[in-house]
Simulated scan of single mutants.
Amino acid sequence: MQVEAVLARAESATELGIRYRLGKGGMNPGSPTPAAGGFCDCSGFVAWCFSMSRKSNENFYKHFNGGWMDTTAIWTDVGNSVGIFSELTGPKAGAIVVYPDANGKQGHIGIMVNENKVVHCSGGNDKRHGNAILITGPDVFLARKDVRFGWLNGLN
């Protein structure tokens, strides 16, 4: 898979009026949008952008949490390079940016469009703009000390 194809797929889902709902979307990589019934969450969106289902058969994910690609599993994979992602030292186009669930709050994940922009699906985007999937600055991620940047193995 090429970075340009991932970014084009991600950008094609912006401004469609997709609403945020935790645990939704990203199950059918062949779907024209990441939404399930008009709803999606951040990890479902990212899985769809990479043409994967958020339910993985990859060994690390199967052992970590039954195969689910959620923010904490992906964050753990990135930090240990034990699954399908490797850790990067900083942002670049096509990289994921992720932080885990912590203190009773959900984690979050997006895809870097460039060093200053990220495309992501969030409840905040949904509440403020009526679209859960938008391209924004990376501030929500960079404000976190536990943020990690990752690269999908095999992405060119």
Rank of each mutant, 00 (worst) to 15 (best):
G83L: 13
G83K: 00
I84W: 10
F85I: 09
F85G: 09
S86M: 14
S86T: 15
S86R: 14
S86L: 13
S86D: 15
E87V: 12
L88D: 12
L88K: 14
L88S: 14
L88V: 13
T89P: 05
G90D: 00
P91A: 12
K92I: 12
A93R: 11
A93L: 09
G94A: 01
A95G: 05
A95C: 07
A95Y: 11
I96K: 01
I96C: 01
V97E: 06
V97A: 08
V97L: 10
V97K: 09
V97N: 02
V98N: 01
V98L: 04
V98W: 07
V98M: 05
A102P: 03
A102D: 13
A102G: 13
N103E: 11
G104T: 01
K105W: 14
K105S: 11
Q106L: 14
Q106W: 15
Q106E: 14
G107N: 04
G107R: 05
H108Y: 01
H108K: 02
H108P: 05
H108Q: 04
I109F: 09
G110V: 08
G110T: 01
M112D: 10
M112P: 07
V113C: 10
V113G: 06
V113Y: 03
N114S: 06
N114M: 07
E115D: 15
E115S: 13
N116E: 15
K117N: 11
V119P: 03
V119R: 02
V119M: 05
H120D: 03
C121Q: 00
